[in-house]
Design a protein around this nucleic acid. Structure first.
Lengths: 152, 152
DNA sequence: TATTGTTATACTCTATAACTATA
DNA sequence: TATAGTTATAGAGTATAACAATA
């Protein structure tokens, strides 16, 4: 039960842990995500930026970094790269001349939608291992766990 | 639904993704794990080593690195640190003089058990957000996802 | 004074390559 | 020749601190 059949090593103290299994399962999905991104010459972190700007055009760099919980300084190289790929653009803000408003280019919108569909298709592979309704149940219980943190 | 009430930013393309929710939920549990480890002056990575050696005394450094899927070279500093804490010890292997056999010290066993209980207690906080039997079902579905990768 | 974007810097984690001593 | 442990090194990823322009 607690033994991994592949190498005969006993993972007992890790296997029984829900956090450990969540991590392993998340890694399975991350591999799909990473691979889909890699095929399009991007990283998961950069896709996250595109996804945020796609649904929230006009955000500043700082707002995006806050939304993704990374430091402002990390955004500079990231936006530079996305701008180099011509999928995002910095527009000088009118109200506040210190900041840029971020927008996806036409190419960027199509790129983001294409990548999103690709990841979605990749994830669907695992639906075969779930019974009817289990996916919704899983999403629901994960939501409860995520919400549970907030009341800490 | 797809909007985070906290900052008014629309995470739609990420929120709908099962992989993203798995990551968020995993981070909730990881915070508990990390905090419990930090209070004992250790890291999650080092605890994983202790957990493996606890259940598999006598493994070589290379075997542990393979079990945890990290490079051999990363083990050196890690075992150095655990040895410095007097929770693990390298014993010269008799059969193969190139390698060490790893064992927990008496202190190391107690330390590992204590830490394990601490993490377990921390995780139990989230059981309140699950119905009867849901935890077992969740472990089961996560196992199916983890196993699904192998047949890729 | 505070904030935006930026740069320089450092720190962690991990991977690669090369070395030594064994096998 | 291949493997175990080691070392040096380099690459991500991310955080901190400081600066100029602007608020």
């Amino acid at each position: 039960m607690n033994t991994d059949a592949q190498n005969g090593i006993d993972y007992a103290m890790l296997q029984s842990r829900l956090g450990y299994k969540l991590r392993r399962a998340q890694m399975v999905y991350f591999d799909v995500f990473f691979e889909a991104c890699a095929q399009e010459g991007i990283t998961p972190g950069l896709f996250s930026i595109l996804a945020i700007v796609y649904h929230n055009p006009g955000l500043t760099q700082s707002a995006v970094s806050a939304a993704l919980d990374v430091d402002r300084s990390a955004m500079v190289a990231a936006i530079d790269k996305l701008e180099g790929m011509e999928v995002i653009e910095r527009r000088k803000s009118k109200n506040d001349r210190r900041s840029y408003a971020l927008y996806l280019t036409k190419k960027g919108k199509a790129f983001t939608e294409h990548l999103n569909q690709k990841v979605e298709a990749g994830e669907q592979r695992f639906d075969a291992f779930m019974q009817e309704g289990e996916r919704e149940w899983l999403l629901d219980i994960l939501d409860r766990i995520i919400e549970a943190r907030k009341g800490s």
